[in-house]
């Protein structure tokens, strides 16, 4: 056995040279290629991720826009519905109001017409009644009625308050209204009855007025004492009108 240390050194040198050469030629280039490809793959993955993110964002935007459109459409629909409802309500209320107004106007017209008609009818009826009464009374015996009215006149003068009586007495001229021109006897009789009732002497100025139908009335400048069919009928007519 011979161990050659020169051979050992030479082989070690050979191995070192081989390690160096292979490191330069093989290991480093391949490792660099691997690293480069991994980096490229990482870059690609990053790009893909970015693109994906962008696409996702665009999709989200689109979805949001679509949702916005839908919401807007709903809103517009709701607004249109509300507007339609409001218009409808307005039209309804307006129609109601117009109808109410028309009906009220019609009602008031009817009422007024009815009132007018009734009043007219009442007036006509009253006048008719007064005419009927006048005609009926005109047929009564004049003397007896006149006597009854004279009696009523004296009673009324007697019932007058003292103040009125004094005013009547103080009056310069007292008219006595008669339905027909009385005779001289009747004039004296009336004058005496009035004077007796008043207790003072007054000058009576006889005035003829057929409108009285029947009765006697005393008239001074400030005072009228109604005592006739005409006055009674007028009072009745007035009462009838007031009764309405």
């Amino acid at each position: 056995m011979n161990f050659d240390f020169w051979g050992l050194g030479l082989q070690a040198l050979n191995a070192v040279i081989l390690i160096w050469l292979l490191s330069r030629v093989f290991w480093r280039p391949v490792a660099a290629a691997i690293t480069r490809r991994q980096a490229a793959a990482q870059t690609l993955l990053g790009d893909a991720k970015a693109t994906q993110d962008k696409a996702d964002a665009a999709l989200a935007e689109l979805t949001a826009a679509r949702a916005g459109i839908a919401a807007e459409r709903d809103k517009v629909l709701a607004e249109a519905k509300d507007a339609a409802l409001a218009i409808k309500a307005d039209a309804q209320s307006e129609a109601h109001a117009q109808a109410e107004t028309i009906m009220a106007a019609a009602r008031s017209d009817m009422a007024r017409e009815a009132d007018t008609a009734r009043e007219t009818m009442n007036a006509q009826a009253g006048e008719l009644a007064v005419d009927i009464a006048r005609k009926l009374l005109g047929e009564l015996p004049g003397e007896a009625v006149q006597a009854a009215f004279l009696q009523k006149l004296t009673d009324a003068i007697g019932d007058l308050p003292a103040q009125d009586r004094a005013a009547l007495v103080a009056a310069k001229r007292v008219d006595l209204m008669c339905p027909a021109d009385p005779s001289a006897d009747a004039k004296t009789e009336i004058t005496s009855a009035v004077q007796q009732a008043l207790g003072e002497a007054v000058v009576l100025n006889f005035v003829t007025d057929p409108a009285l139908i029947a009765g006697y009335e005393l008239r001074s400048d400030h005072f009228v004492l109604h005592n006739s069919w005409q006055a009674d009928l007028a009072a009745i007519l007035k009462e009838m009108r007031h009764a309405d």
């Binding site: 050979n14 292979l22 030629v25 093989f26 391949v30 480069r36």
Partner: peptide, 24 residues
């Protein structure tokens, strides 16, 4: 030793040829 040189030559030349065109 000669065989070692041969192996070295084969390995280095082979590695050089194999790694000539490394690409992505």
């Amino acid at each position: 030793i000669v065989m070692t040189w041969v192996i070295m030559a084969v390995l280095v030349i082979g590695a050089y040829l194999l790694t000539r065109r490394l690409s992505l």
